[in-house]
Every structure is written in C-alpha cells, then in structure tokens.
Design a protein around this nucleic acid. Sequence first.
DNA 1: GTCTATAGATGGATAGAC
DNA 2: GTCTATCCATCTATAGAC
Lengths: 216, 216
Amino acid sequence: MPDPVTATEDTNEAATKAAVFSTAERLFALHGFQSVSVRDITSEAGVNLASVNYHFGSKDALLFEIFRRRTAELNRERARMLHEASTRHDGKPPVRAILEALFAPPLRWASLENDRRISVQFIIRARSEGTADMREALAGDVSHLARFAEALLAARPDLPRETVFWRLHFCLGMIHNNRFAEFDRLHVLSDGATREADIEGLLKRMLDFAEAGFLA
Amino acid sequence: MPDPVTATEDTNEAATKAAVFSTAERLFALHGFQSVSVRDITSEAGVNLASVNYHFGSKDALLFEIFRRRTAELNRERARMLHEASTRHDGKPPVRAILEALFAPPLRWASLENDRRISVQFIIRARSEGTADMREALAGDVSHLARFAEALLAARPDLPRETVFWRLHFCLGMIHNNRFAEFDRLHVLSDGATREADIEGLLKRMLDFAEAGFLA
DNA sequence: GTCTATAGATGGATAGAC
DNA sequence: GTCTATCCATCTATAGAC
C-alpha cells in the first residue's frame, strides 16, 4: 500500500501531465503547431509555465509524444479491424472490408460524441505541419500501410500493382480531407444539405465511392 | 517613351518585388508559413530586409497577395475548362468532363517541367495553414465551386443532392492529397512503382477512380 | 527607394527559491 | 515537483541616414 501523501502527489503530477497533454492536443489541433505557444498551453491548462519542460522536455517533445501516442492508437485499431476482416473472409477479405478497416477508425473517432474527435484533427494536421521528427516517424509508418496495400493487391490480383497503390493514395486523400474547416466549407456550399453528424452515413458514402473507384 | 533612368529604376523595383514574391512562395510552399521568416525570404532573394514591408506592407499581406493571385489563376483556368466542356456538350457536360475541369489545372501545374509546380504546393498548404484572411477568402471561394456542384447536379439529376456534394468533397480530397510529402511516401510504399512524373497518366487514373465513384 | 540599425514584442528554456 | 523571475534568441516592423 503506497504512502497516501506520495500517492496524492503522484496523482497530482499525473493530473498535471495529463492536463498539459490534452490541452496541447486541443490547441494544436484547432490552431496549428507554430501558432500555439507553451504559454498558451500552460495558461489554458491552469498549470505552471515550466510544466511542459519538466514533464516533456521541450515543446517539440510534447508535440511528438502526442503524435506518437495517437498514431499508435489509430494504427492498432485499423490493424485489428483488418485482421478481423481477414479472419471473417478466410484470409482473402474483399476490397470493401479492407477499406472499411482503413476508413472506420478515424471516422468513428471524429463523431461528435467521441472524446477523440479532436485527436483526428491533430493527426491530420501533423501530416502537413509536423516537425522533422514527426515526418521521419511517418516514413516508418509505411509498414503499417503496407499491410493494407498487400490486402488490396490480393483482393485485386488482376490490377497492375501501381494502379492499386495510386487508388490507395486516393482513398487516403479522402480521409485526410475530413478537417473541421473542410466540413464547414462543404456545409456552406451545400446550403446545409451535408450533415457531418451522421458518421455512419458518411462511412457508407465513402465506402460506396471508394469501392466503386477500386472496382473500375 | 519613358525616361531611361526611371525605366531602369522601375524595372529594378519590379524585379525586387518579383524576386520577393517568388522566393516567398517557394519557401512558404516548402517549409510552411510560420517557419519562414521575413529574414529567410529577403536573404534568399538577395534583397534588403525592409523590402517585404516596403513592397507588400507586411509579411501577412505578402502571404495573402501570393494566395490571392494563385487561387485566382487556378479558378480562372478551371472555370474556362468547365465552360469549354459545357459548350462541347450542348450545356450538359458529363461527369467525367466536369471532373477533368476540376482535376486537370492543378495537376498540369504540378508537372515537373512547369513553373507553377510550386504554386500548387503553396495553395494546398494555404488550405490548412492559412491566416484568418485567407480562410475568409476561401469561404468566398465557394461561389467558384458552386458552378462545379451545379454542373454535377445537372449531370446526375437522379442522385440525392447531398450525395453529389459529398462526392465532390471526396474528389477535392483526392486533389489536396497531392503534396510532395505524400507523393514521396507513396513512392516508398510502392517501392518505386508509382511515377509522379507521368502527370497525364495520373490525371487519367484520378478520372477513372472518381468517375466510377460518381456513377456508383 | 534602398539600406542599416534598432525598437518592441514574443517565444522557448532554465536557474534557483520554496 | 512547483513556481517565479529571467535569460537569451528570434521575430516583425519601422525610423532615419543616404
């Protein structure tokens, strides 16, 4: 049984670290990386200015830790869905099941009632505004995408290899365009006809579009 | 006939302004907006530190002017292609011709031998990292997209309105994903099978994919 | 108009008290 | 571990000499 005083201190420390983490993630996701200062984060989180350096080392290290944790979680969820699709279809899942494993995790995160809604925006932003560290990590992330490419190649052995890769690239573009600003713009353009709230409906729309594109 | 001295000065002034403009566009496109300082721009352009403020007013105003000029050029080219497709098809262009007017201009700009290759990267970056001014301008840009939406609705009157808007959104995502970093990543993933240099081939691939998705 | 020098503001990081 | 005070680098913008 731990010393109650120590336990309380540990809890406080963990709470401070967690507050910094989630506040930073939210501010970075909403306003970009370079625009948000350490002072913005600590003042909004209600913690001391020095906490970022104490708990994470530097602003960049904090950024990278958020990035690493969120991408790991997302990749794990995608890999799990791909694996389930594979077992469900005797090791040869069809295109639609593969694409669902790629689309569903970030889309479900993005639903209005999901805590991770902001995490998706963070990850998308990291793809274009990330630091050198993050871009290196993204290059290593290719191994994760490779499993999806393999599954797609197996599902469509009749297609030229490069065609499958290009179409996977198009699908990734569809996902990365799901930013708050783009949803808002579409909402204006369609005069309110597009309802971002209906995530399962959007998933079906994306799958219909991408599956047809893949079977062309 | 202008005074030769004045003409030379005017030319020098215009040359300085143009050097600042194109150097800034390139650096912003390659490294992001906040990462590039006025000092970076002026030293790389070989002009004085004060030239940015003298010729453009401020760093943000310079950014906005680049953004405004490039998006105007791109929108004009797209509108022209859409108009030509419309006359070619008696006012009712098919989906593929509409999408070609949307895809071809930014893709052709992105070809290796095109001077505007860097401008596309600038515009894409502006969509996610732009200032408040630029985001406002993007909202006004909806009128330009509305013409494409109208054409698509006319080409597929059988589809629910919101379906057409969502699919247009997916197509825009395909375009916006054509960043240098994403091309590089795809190149690694496909082990060199995807050749970014073949722009006309890529255009055909995008049209095949998107047209099939639209006709689903 | 061009340039240097500098003002004025803000940023990340840290030393040192508690 | 937490906090304050502060260092030092860097940035944008501008005043003023030429």
